[in-house]
Amino acid sequence: MQEKAEAAPILSMNSVEVLYDNIMLAIKGVSIQVPTGEMIALLGSNGAGKSTTLKAISGLLKAERGRISRGEIAFQGTDITEVLAQNRVGMGICHVIEGRRVFEHLTPDENLTAAAPRGMSRSALNAEKEKIYNYFPRLAERRNSQAGYLSGGEQQMLAIGRALVTQPSLLMLDEPSLGLAPFLVEEIFGILQKINREEGMSVLLVEQNALAALEIVSQGYLIENGRVVMHGTAEALKSNSDIQEFYLGGGEGTNFHNVKHYSRRKRWLS
């Protein structure tokens, strides 16, 4: 583990600021690094800037009239700040956007086909599909039904499978656990871990469900109000008392009668 962390990071984001519509500052100088082959979590509450961070990396900001106004993002050592979203996918960055967003009127099989990179041969695509169906056997069963009628969990699996077809070396997921039953979250996270181990794919996971996320990642960043306020290994974060109270649902044996709420604000929020 120690050696891995010292290797060159696959992604390094350096004090990036994002402006929406040229006025709204959504993230205010975020710096994060994803070491090659590791799983990293971005934690934080609603509206903290987690999704914006991912969109800055994938280039999807542009579709929402956002832009990077300061800082730079390097992927495998190359500055990608000015690269178009679709070309970033070609370089190996794929972003599973929030809310699953499968192609509803296509079948799961067609959803996978749609994501095939230009020039991928038919046999390579079929091999890729088989691999994905092996990871997600539920999808294989429903490969020819309409994707819009899959269950939430199946749609999330399809969204991940669709991203895998693009052959990413960095897979970014935005709230894959959203609206899913705990056993499904566990199943999907288990598969992500398997993909990470078997293919050495680096993963950047955005989650509100910190409890589940910290079980599978090696490091985590905590973002609040558009800033990174904490960074550490998963173990360190899990045992941090602030994280426990605000994100993991209560510390050990807290006696609520004795808690002075005003003194336990998120004081790193300046």
Binding site: L60, F103, E104, A114
Partner: peptide, 23 residues
Amino acid sequence: TRTGIKLRAIADDYMASWSVGIS
């Protein structure tokens, strides 16, 4: 065909299409 499927994907969801590298 693959190109035809990509076109249908675009009609379904622009954002998701961009996210998987469809132009």
